[in-house]
Design a protein around this nucleic acid. Structure first.
Lengths: 226, 226
DNA sequence: CACACGTACATACCGTGAGTACGTACCCAC
DNA sequence: GTGGGTACGTACTCACGGTATGTACGTGTG
């Protein structure tokens, strides 16, 4: 019985010079767990992924897992945060180089439609996130990553008009756009022709934006009530 | 040991004169299971609700449950379908009495915002539906109930304009509005002041509709691409 | 009205998987 | 070198979904 124990394929963890060998090993196993968990959660879903499968994939035992995470949900949350952070970064990167708010909006929309087609984002963030974390916790996470980007864009676009919107109204618009794009993104990625579907979504939302622009230019007031 | 066996509180099941006593008993236990499951799924969520708790609440055993349903997921699906059907009916009812497409849209929006604030709809349909049923199955269900209503409204509104949209484009717009309203509804029902939040959502979406109307009246073409 | 049959359950059991208790090896500070 | 704390490994428990099997009662048939 060969027992490689720790002499395994150590995942690439960014070398931090100040950290001790012990700390580096620890970080690498933790990262390995998150890596494998992300993979399995994405392909099989949260409920159908056993901790045994995860620790086997990471070549550790449950002891290691429960040393780094308080449980299955905490591990999911770590995966969730990483996927979210990556998505947020991707969107923010796409915004650089655009000054015009409308251009930023279009670029951001494109980036979001790209992100939302990644299987891991669809499954972990959109599909399972709300159910596993609970809506409250889900929202806390979204609030300071992807949704924050959408909010920023919406703020830039809407403050270009002549209306003065209070913060609540901005949040409402951002929610609406965020939901629209999430839902549209889901349908895009499950469409027969995702490219054509993405183009339709861009057209549709672009059309809404044009409507905004037109109203802004012609000085139409926000309807105070319906 | 008193064994009331079948002499329990029989749930009100609509009396069908043609059905035998045996069939009526069967229907009533099935209904009791769905009733209790809906209650528990709504309050505790799918994963945290055990079948033991459900059968205890319905005052039957697991044998009865597995006689009527193939498993936990099938029971959830039965609950899901009923909640969806109720929601769909509520929306359709609100549409009667309105001929003008824009009026129908506003009425439908109001009804949807009402539905989406029901805890059972939020939890079972929006929150847990996609994760428990899987997105594909979830979409199949939505497609022929609530989403169908949204599609109908969008079709009525958009065909009032001068544009000629193909079916795919209509579906895209419907998806966008559906997602926007779902997301907005979630935020409404978890807001500090749901009534004010609902009003803001109505204002925001109403504003988008006004943009559509303006564009339609002024004969603006759909941008073929961004 | 007797009887066979199928429905509508109840009971007892099993396998899986999340979580826990406890033991241990190893690195680091002193 | 040594005490101590970190980073795990091992063995177990228990809850829960699902199954296998037994059974009572209503219902159609002769």
């Amino acid at each position: 019985m060969s027992k490689p124990s720790v002499s395994k394929l150590v995942p690439k963890v960014p070398h931090v010079p100040g950290a001790s060998r012990r700390q580096q090993y620890s970080a690498s196993t933790k990262r390995a767990l998150v890596d494998v968990a992300e993979e399995l959660f994405t392909t099989h879903g949260y409920a159908s992924t056993s901790l045994d499968a995860i620790v086997a994939g990471a070549q550790v035992t449950k002891g290691a897992l429960y040393h780094h995470f308080s449980g299955k949900q905490a591990l999911f949350e770590a995966v969730f945060e990483r996927v979210e952070a990556d998505a947020s970064r991707a969107i923010q990167t796409s915004l650089r180089g655009h000054q015009d708010p409308w251009e930023k909006a279009r670029a951001g929309l494109r980036a979001f439609l790209g992100v939302v087609q990644e299987p891991r984002y669809r499954r972990i963030v959109i599909q399972e996130g709300p159910a596993v974390l609970g809506y409250e916790r889900y929202r806390e996470q979204e609030e300071r990553s992807t949704f924050a980007n959408v909010l920023e864009i919406v703020r830039a676009v809407l403050s270009a008009g002549t209306w003065d919107l209070d913060e609540d109204m901005l949040q409402t618009f951002a929610r609406i756009f965020f939901g629209a794009m999430s839902s549209a993104g889901e349908s895009v990625s499950s469409a027969d022709d995702p490219i054509a579907a993405a183009a339709r979504v861009e057209t549709a939302i672009g059309f809404i934006l044009v409507g905004f622009q037109t109203l802004a230019d012609s000085g139409v007031e926000l309807p105070s009530s319906l």
